[in-house]
Computed example of a mutant assay.
Amino acid sequence: MSEIGWIDTQEEFDALMHKLAGVDAYALDTEFHREKSYFPHLALLQIAWEEDGHQTIVVIDPLPLNLESMRTLLESDALAILHAADQDLEVLYRACQRVPRRLFDTQIASAFLGMGLASLARLVQALENKNLPKGDRLTDWTRRPLDQGQIRYAASDVEYLLPMRRELLSRADKNGTREWIEEECERVRNKNVAPLDPDTAWWKIKGSRNLRGKNVGVAQCVAAWRERAAQKRDLPPRFVLPDLGLASIVQRAPMNSQELSRVRGFDGRYGKNGAEEGILEAVAKGSELQPDDLRRPPKGQAPGDDLGATLALGQALVAQISSETGIEPSMLATRADIQALAWGRESGRLTNGWRADIAGARLEALFAGKVGLSGNGKGGLRIVDLP
């Protein structure tokens, strides 16, 4: 690895951001923590770029910096190259309210090229025949100073991204998947990275689809209270009220302190600093919530587990399509994608773009009884038209 630069002054950071806005492409990674917080907290930035055939790597300490000038880079035409970008995009948006205007994700590309959703270490080994340094995965990246081993370990996350992109695109051009890769990278770039809408938090409650009557309104209001409290206090929602306590409150709808104290999963520590009053107010509000005020999941969003046979059939078809195309099955369609389509949801990943062409249309035909699956006599499956 070439020499690694370290930036922790505002002047150096601002100058670098403006400089990189003029390059063709740059590699980017972040280190962050969120184990004990609602929002991710950026602890380190790693960036690599090339000039005159030479690669430069810098590690940036964001803790003392104002990151506003990073918007200049993210909004530029320079292509951001990341690996497994989803969480990094959320971190960047939280740090400077922007995501890159152009994105290439090496993990997404690997999923289209017969390598699955490869880890960075496996992809570097496969494409560059190099081994990434092993480091302590439990490093506290907010502690200062970082030692040279930690800095080198962080820098290695961007060291090979630029050459790997070139190799991945070369392979994609040969098998005709480049357009799909670029489409999927753009979809990931455009994903909503803003905090969860509190009024939809109840969709994640186990068994929420089976709720009836006033319990639906109670679920919406109490889950929304928990989500807003977690956001305000920057704590994981389970620290505000555990999932078991939330589910129990929804089922029992306690109307006073005595009833609340008997709810399973709730004890006094979760009722401090006005929390008990907030929960009871949410229960009362939810009990009176009118149908027009309910925020229900989109059709097909939460179908439950009563599609077992249909889901299994859909997953088998996706596995067969994966075998034919070399595309990672979970990239083609997740369990939730298949469920949503089976339940008739008219929007979603399988209803537009490359997925609709490759998997969505065939799954719809399967669920409509127009095609079926049978053994091919060789231990595999084949898709057959049905009369």
Results as ranks from 00 to 15, higher is better:
Gly5Phe: 09
Gly5Lys: 11
Ile7Glu: 01
Asp8Tyr: 07
Asp8Ala: 09
Glu11Pro: 12
Phe13Cys: 11
Met17Phe: 13
Lys19Asn: 15
Gly22Gln: 14
Asp24Tyr: 05
Asp24Gln: 12
Tyr26Val: 12
Ala27Asp: 07
Leu28Phe: 15
Asp29Cys: 14
Thr30Phe: 10
Phe32Val: 01
His33Gly: 09
His33Ile: 13
Tyr38Lys: 10
His41Ala: 09
Leu42Phe: 07
Ala43Tyr: 00
Leu44Pro: 06
Leu44Tyr: 11
Leu45Ile: 14
Ile47Trp: 01
Ile47Gly: 05
Ala48Glu: 11
Glu51Arg: 13
Asp52Phe: 03
Asp52Met: 04
Gly53Asp: 08
His54Tyr: 01
His54Leu: 05
Val58Ser: 08
Val59His: 11
Ile60Met: 11
Asp61Trp: 09
Leu63Val: 10
Leu67Gln: 06
Leu67Gly: 10
Glu68Met: 05
Met70Phe: 06
Thr72Arg: 10
Thr72Tyr: 04
Asp77Leu: 04
Asp77Trp: 00
Ala78Phe: 03
Leu79His: 10
Ala80Met: 04
Ala80Cys: 13
Ile81Lys: 02
Leu82Thr: 08
Leu82Pro: 07
Ala84His: 14
Ala85Ser: 15
Asp86Asn: 15
Asp86Pro: 15
Leu89Gly: 08
Glu90Lys: 08
Glu90Tyr: 04
Leu92Ser: 06
Tyr93Val: 06
Ala95Pro: 03
Ala95Thr: 03
Gln97Cys: 04
Arg98Ala: 14
Pro100Arg: 02
Pro100Glu: 04
Leu103Tyr: 11
Leu103Pro: 14
Asp105Ala: 08
Thr106Met: 06
Gln107Phe: 03
Ile108Pro: 10
Ala109Gln: 01
Ala109Cys: 00
Ala109His: 00
Ser110Asp: 05
Ala111Ser: 14
Ala111Ile: 04
Ala111His: 02
Ala111Pro: 08
Phe112Ser: 02
Leu113Ala: 03
Met115Glu: 15
Gly116Trp: 01
Gly116Asp: 09
Gly116Lys: 01
Leu117Arg: 10
Ala118Pro: 11
Leu120His: 07
Ala121Tyr: 00
Arg122Ile: 03
Leu123His: 09
Leu123Arg: 08
Val124Pro: 05
Ala126Tyr: 13
Ala126Arg: 14
Leu127Asn: 02
Leu127Ala: 04
Leu127Tyr: 12
Leu127Arg: 10
Asn129Thr: 10
